[in-house]
């Protein structure tokens, strides 16, 4: 069974199951959106649990959240927002078939992502691990706030920012692979769709943070 037997012109970029490039492009984009739906539901379960506990323990959670560093969280928000801008530029450049700007903007994204993780791990997490806020070695001396509630808060904090951080890390790996392929002029990234898909993923990761930041850092009295 050769490709010619399909009885239609086969573009080199098109996998055998598709008829033509537009069909393939649309399929990939629909697939990516469907995947993002699953991601929303995945994080959604955690947001639900956190919001319920925050409603239940609001006064305590308010006291506990003062342990978080709003400045660093805010800085990270700016960093991620900028990275989303860079990603949008990378997608645009790829659509315009401009290789160097594509690679350049993707590098900006990578730098932002690295900065985000650096700030998160070195300035925020390591400090909290040091003072004993991880659930498996939890310490809490603040009077007026029950230690188990504080532990619940920090479990959710580490769980949710951890899962988000993991998504950032996975994003960096995928973007790295994409950069390599573009740099090598690989066949699979001749079309801009892979970049577009990774872009969607990246914006999603960004949006998750946009929700995490106010929920954890900016709490009303």
């Amino acid at each position: 069974m050769s490709a010619a037997a399909h009885g239609h012109d086969h573009d080199d970029l098109v996998f055998h199951q598709f008829e033509d490039l537009p069909q393939q492009r649309e399929s990939y984009i629909v697939g990516m959106w469907a995947f993002l739906v699953t991601e929303v539901m995945f994080f959604g379960g955690l947001f639900l649990a956190y919001i319920l506990y925050r409603m239940k323990y609001q006064p305590y959670f308010f006291e506990i959240h003062k342990e978080l560093n709003i400045g660093l969280g805010g800085l990270n928000t700016v960093v991620l927002l900028f990275s989303s801008f860079a990603m949008a530029m990378a997608v645009y450049s790829h659509q315009m078939k401009r290789k160097k700007p594509t690679l350049g903007w993707l590098t900006v994204v990578q730098l932002c992502a690295a900065a985000f993780l650096f700030i998160k791990l070195v300035f925020e997490w390591s400090h909290k691990i040091h003072v004993g806020h991880v659930p498996w070695a939890f310490q809490w001396n603040e009077p007026g706030v029950p230690p188990e509630i504080a532990k619940l808060f920090f479990s959710m904090y580490f769980g949710m920012t951890g899962l988000h951080g993991l998504h950032v890390l996975i994003g960096m790996i995928i973007i790295g692979a994409l950069q390599y392929l573009i740099w090598k002029d690989a066949y699979s990234v001749k079309d801009y769709i892979p970049t577009e898909m990774i872009g969607l993923y990246w914006h999603f990761v960004d949006i998750v943070w946009i929700f995490l930041f106010p929920l954890f850092y900016l709490m009303p009295q």
Partner: peptide
């Protein structure tokens, strides 16, 4: 729509078992 929710739920039970995080444990709030 549904499977990711059960996935995260089961993952929370695993975390509960490994790190005693307390989400589903009344003794921990």
């Amino acid at each position: 729509l549904g499977t990711p929710v059960v996935a995260i739920t089961l993952l929370l039970v695993v975390m509960e078992r490994m790190f005693d995080i307390g989400v589903f444990n009344p003794a921990n709030g």
